[in-house]
């Protein structure tokens, strides 16, 4: 399967051409690949390198730095649960325990059905709504075990109604 469809590829190539320094698009290209494929495979890194006219290693140096570029396969939805001080001080750890119980996985794992990957994240900038988590860029705050159950259900339904 191609990493990117023809249309996305030509759009990105056009943007790269418009930049005086193509390298500055590296995060954009990696995010574009991730948006289509869920994660960035080795082939994705090589495609980005080709687009940006730098070596795959130079792309990989950047790709492996950022936490939210996934260089390994993830589930269709990635849950990032905040473990920084505000969420932590308002029951974040209980939410983690609940998520692990519900999903039957621990941090870093993906559910067997490939639906959810559970990852920690540092502060989401939702300290006023602690504890908080994000699911594929969608933010959920004021989490309680009941709210988590509801969110998981909704997120799951969104993929397979």
């Amino acid at each position: 399967m191609d990493v990117l469809d023809e249309k996305t590829l030509s759009e990105l190539a056009a943007r790269v051409r418009a930049y005086p320094y193509p390298r500055e698009m590296v995060v954009d290209v990696l995010r574009a690949i991730q948006e289509r494929r869920g994660w960035v495979s080795d082939e994705g890194v090589e495609l980005a390198a080709q687009l940006l006219r730098i070596s795959p290693l130079e792309v990989e140096e950047v790709a492996t730095f950022y936490d939210k570029i996934y260089r390994r396969p993830v589930g269709r939805k990635v849950i990032h649960l905040c473990d920084s001080v505000c969420c932590f001080s308002r029951g974040g750890e209980d939410i983690l325990k609940h998520l692990e119980k519900r999903l039957q996985i621990t941090l870093g794992q993906t559910t067997p059905d490939g639906m959810f990957t559970l990852l920690p994240t540092c502060c989401l900038g939702a300290c006023g709504q602690a504890p908080a988590m994000s699911v594929n860029l969608r933010l959920y705050g004021h989490l309680t075990p009941e709210a988590v159950d509801r969110i998981l259900e909704e997120e799951r339904r969104e993929v397979s109604p």
Binding site: R23, E24, M25, V26, V27, L30, F65, Y66, D67, C122
Partner: peptide
């Protein structure tokens, strides 16, 4: 794409440069 260090202004510039 998610790292606190980019709040440091020179790290941020490196980030912008790819």
């Amino acid at each position: 794409a998610g790292r606190y260090i980019l709040g440091e202004e020179t790290a941020l510039l490196n980030g912008l440069e790819g």
